[in-house]
Design a protein around this nucleic acid. Structure first.
Lengths: 210, 210
DNA sequence: CTCATTACTTGCCAAATGGCAATTCATTGC
DNA sequence: GCAATGAATTGCCATTTGGCAAGTAATGAG
């Protein structure tokens, strides 16, 4: 409430950086490690902010950073044979934002990662990650767990494409990630679900009738 | 041609095991390592044979082995909400046969891995792999590369489900893995492609007309 | 070899999804 | 605030895919 205090607090934050509580929590949720080891892992991460519409990664470039999204929304997409965008994923909350193939193989990616809103992240560079992997077994476990989780999520999504109707996939998404619908245009969501935006519109109409 | 020699040779093979040429080749193709390191990695693998219809892994169990398929064909499948089988993958040639999530997290799997033909594999247990990871950075790279490759393959398949028609997916499969069609029933292939076996039958009919 | 079971194909029709174009709605830059 | 652009909805109809049931072919157990 008192202006002076706010000014000091903001200066304090500027110097100290954002606090790493959420990052530490994420590490604990990912691998079983002591508080001390979690802090050691978290120390390797730096903060970054990304303005709406900016890119974290662009097609043809090599992914050099592994991000944990602290606030904001990101989408990733690639192009199909006709040159149309196809959404590969949405990221929110405390999710990992990283094109695993390009990052771990250090080869050019086919995907684009773009901020849907202003974002703040914790990130580590590939070079720093390699160093940390080499010196800390706990960090290796953390890295492996990221990959395995991404793999399992992708498999679940692939199975959903095989087994579920477009409407079922829509319902799964709106229940698991309702905030995406506040932050991404429906046409991005349509291509994520594997339908045209025309069909998505009709699916929504059908559901709203009931 | 001379019976005696064959007998001796078979005894020799029994004692020595299959030769590891294909395994070494696989390691070299996966990560850039010296011949010596490749041999060290290969030394951690043991041989196994699996008879047709036997399971390498069953639903509810924890995946304890990581296999490289040396000969034969394997399919993996899970069950959808109606209890129907859904093929998750086919394995042939020199492919990795392993349920990555269950293996690396040591948690029960939802998938079954079954031999479509008699198979021979090279495998390493999770326990041995952990030891090897700990002591050999090259082995860690090898393991990570397996995961990243599996992830990239899965993403490609997911994108194909989104972008391509059933007929296009059929054509991709028959060109990339024609031998699967000699070794798996069409109904397994249908659920892999995300269509009913009725539809697959019609797709094949359409193609054969041309 | 024969029977029984399972896999595969086919016809008929229904349901789901797509393509295109017109219209309405929302956003953004000036 | 207003025009211009892009997003979303909707109608009409075509195409793709599915469901069911019947028939045929292939496979496997005894």
């Amino acid at each position: 409430m008192i202006i002076f205090e706010d000014v000091y607090y903001n200066q304090f934050k500027m110097m100290m950086g954002r606090d790493k509580t959420s990052l530490l929590q994420f590490i604990h949720d990912t691998v079983p490690v002591s508080q001390q080891k979690a802090v050691e892992i978290a120390d390797r991460f730096q903060e970054k902010t990304i303005a709406k519409n900016e890119f974290l990664l662009q097609e043809g470039k090599v992914c050099k950073e592994f991000h944990l999204l602290d606030a904001g929304f990101v989408w990733s997409y690639t192009h199909d044979v006709n040159g149309d965008d196809v959404t590969t994923n949405f990221y929110s909350n405390k999710q990992v934002v990283c094109e695993m193939f390009s990052f771990f193989k250090q080869q050019p990616t086919k995907e684009n990662f773009q901020a849907l809103t202003d974002c703040s992240t914790w990130f580590i560079s590939f070079a720093d990650l390699q160093i940390a992997f080499h010196s800390m077994p706990e960090f290796r476990e953390f890295g492996r767990s990221m990959l395995v989780t991404a793999y399992a999520d992708l498999k679940q999504r692939m199975l959903s494409m095989v087994q579920d109707t477009a409407e079922e996939r829509y319902n799964l998404l709106i229940h698991s990630s309702p905030d995406i619908f506040q932050n991404a245009p429906l046409k991005y969501i349509a291509s994520y679900l594997g339908v045209t935006s025309t069909s998505l519109s009709r699916i929504r109409k059908e559901i709203s009738k009931r």
